[in-house]
């Protein structure tokens, strides 16, 4: 069947997890994050500018990510976000939680099939 469009609710709940994990390895700016999400989900998940940035600001206020204006030679300045220490902490907890949740779902749907 065609790849299902994720439920809005699910997208909301997992948005933070996605962003945090994308920042795990290196700092990125907002457009980059949006592109990566669309790319890696093969177009299934797209973030609107109007939903993405308020989310980034929220994460920033919680001190899970930190944003900085960076001016690279020859480019206009852009705002880069990086993961903080507490952000890293949260990320691993979220990952575990998500894993459990998915397992639980699988268990149930698995039993029904059998």
């Amino acid at each position: 069947m065609a790849s299902p469009v994720p439920d809005r609710e699910l997208k909301k709940g997992s948005a933070e997890l996605m962003i945090l994990s994308l920042l795990e390895n290196r700092p990125r700016h907002g457009y980059e994050i949006a592109q990566l999400i669309e790319l890696r989900s093969r177009g299934a998940i797209r973030f609107n500018v109007a939903s993405l940035y308020p989310l980034l600001y929220r994460l920033e206020k919680r001190n899970w990510i930190r944003g900085r204006w960076v001016e690279k030679a020859g480019q206009r300045r852009r705002r880069y976000y990086r993961l903080t220490a507490s952000g890293k902490n949260v990320l691993s907890k979220q990952r575990a939680g998500w894993r459990e949740f998915v397992e639980a779902i699988n268990l149930i749907t698995g039993i029904q099939r059998a």
């Binding site: 700016h29 907002g30 457009y31 949006a34 500018v49 993405l52 940035y53 206009r76 852009r78 705002r79």
Partner: peptide, 14 residues
């Protein structure tokens, strides 16, 4: 001003 700048960059990239 900050927000406007950031969002406008995104839109320009788009």
């Amino acid at each position: 001003a900050e927000i406007v700048e950031e969002l406008s960059q995104h839109l320009e990239d788009e």
